[in-house]
């Protein structure tokens, strides 16, 4: 796949259709891969696409689409939802991006591989239901369901939203996804248990802002947490509860716009399951306003900013036991 992508990128660069390529390159280790922009064909030697390329590149296209010339972007299905949502919010100039959809069969989570005692990772490839991990000690085989990141195990869609061309096979929306199971589990807790759960998780937060900075829904020119007029920023020093509020406010801010790409949890150095906050909102929106997938439809108003006569009344919170 990687070679075919590079070849196609070179073609498009050569015929002048695009002037840059958005993709991924290796970091210090083969598994710490980061999104990268390649300015010419020569730079593409660093282009990589493998089972560690989980990073969502759509957010980078905000700035890239402001520059001169068109950029080629390879988007995985989940990236394409974020991309379409950004289009809806007028954050990306669609004319400046040439989108090639690429399939994704689930990306590996390095932490899970390490937890299996596999160290010295040099590379990864996919073989049926297993990942073959190349290490300095030789090849190791690990079942995909044991090594895949949580968001891929509960993948919502292998189908893209808005692409100019597809490479490889287009997939399907996965109606069977179990992505809300963990949320349902939390909902079944008593309020006290749930509070303890989140206090436990969020107390580890070091406010590195990685979740905010990677999030394709957090694209404000200036974040409300950095805005002195919001009167929020100076609360950080005043309360140890602040990091909890940060995540809750952030979840509110992206409610209805979060496409559930799972980047927040992927980048969290403290392994806080932040995506569960967003999924709770998505689940609630689905239940209260009907099925809705952010990014799936570029023209539709999202339920949080739309009013219909059938909307539930605020009393629904009470009816669902939210007062307890």
């Amino acid at each position: 796949m990687q070679e075919a992508m590079i070849a196609r990128a070179k073609e498009l660069l050569a015929d002048g259709s695009v002037s840059r390529v958005m993709g991924w390159k290796k970091g210090e280790f083969s598994y710490d891969i980061s999104p990268a922009v390649f300015e010419n064909a020569d730079q593409l030697v660093d282009f990589v696409y493998d089972d560690f390329c989980g990073a969502n590149v759509s957010k980078y296209l905000i700035n890239e689409s402001k520059k001169e010339g068109k950029i080629l972007a390879f988007l995985k299905p989940c990236d394409s939802y974020s991309f379409a949502q950004l289009l809806k919010e007028h954050r990306i100039d669609r004319e400046k991006v040439y989108v090639i959809g690429i399939p994704s069969y689930g990306k590996a989570d390095i932490n899970k591989i390490r937890a299996k005692g596999i160290d010295g990772v040099l590379g990864i490839k996919s073989e049926g239901t297993d990942f073959i991990v190349d290490t300095i000690y030789g090849e190791e085989k690990i079942a995909k369901f044991e090594a895949m990141s949580e968001r891929c195990l509960t993948c919502k869609s292998k189908k893209h939203v808005d692409v100019d061309e597809m490479m490889g096979e287009e997939g399907e929306w996965n109606a069977e996804s179990k992505r809300f199971d963990k949320v349902a589990e939390l909902e079944a807790m008593t309020p006290d248990e749930r509070f303890e759960f989140w206090r436990g998780e969020l107390s580890r937060c070091i406010r590195c802002n990685a979740c905010r900075n990677v999030c394709p829904a957090c694209t404000c020119v200036s974040c409300v947490f950095d805005n002195p007029n919001s009167d929020i920023n100076n609360k950080a020093a005043a309360s140890s509860f602040e990091e909890n509020m940060f995540h809750i406010i952030r979840a509110f801010h992206v409610a209805g716009r979060c496409t559930d790409c799972g980047e927040c949890s992927r980048v969290c150095p403290q392994n806080i399951p932040l995506h569960l906050l967003n999924r709770k909102f998505i689940k609630d929106i689905n239940e209260l306003y009907g099925q809705y997938q952010a990014g799936a439809n570029a023209d539709e108003k999202y339920p949080m900013v739309n009013f219909t006569f059938d909307d539930c009344e605020p009393g629904i919170v009470y009816k669902r036991g939210g007062n307890q």
């Binding site: 919010e89 954050r91 404000c220 020119v221 200036s222 007029n229 900013v305 739309n306």
Partner: peptide, 15 residues
């Protein structure tokens, strides 16, 4: 609207 901070995301116009 503070133009230096506005994203132009249309959320305000929607509501």
């Amino acid at each position: 609207s503070d133009e230096m901070m506005c994203n132009g995301c249309s959320t305000c116009a929607n509501v």
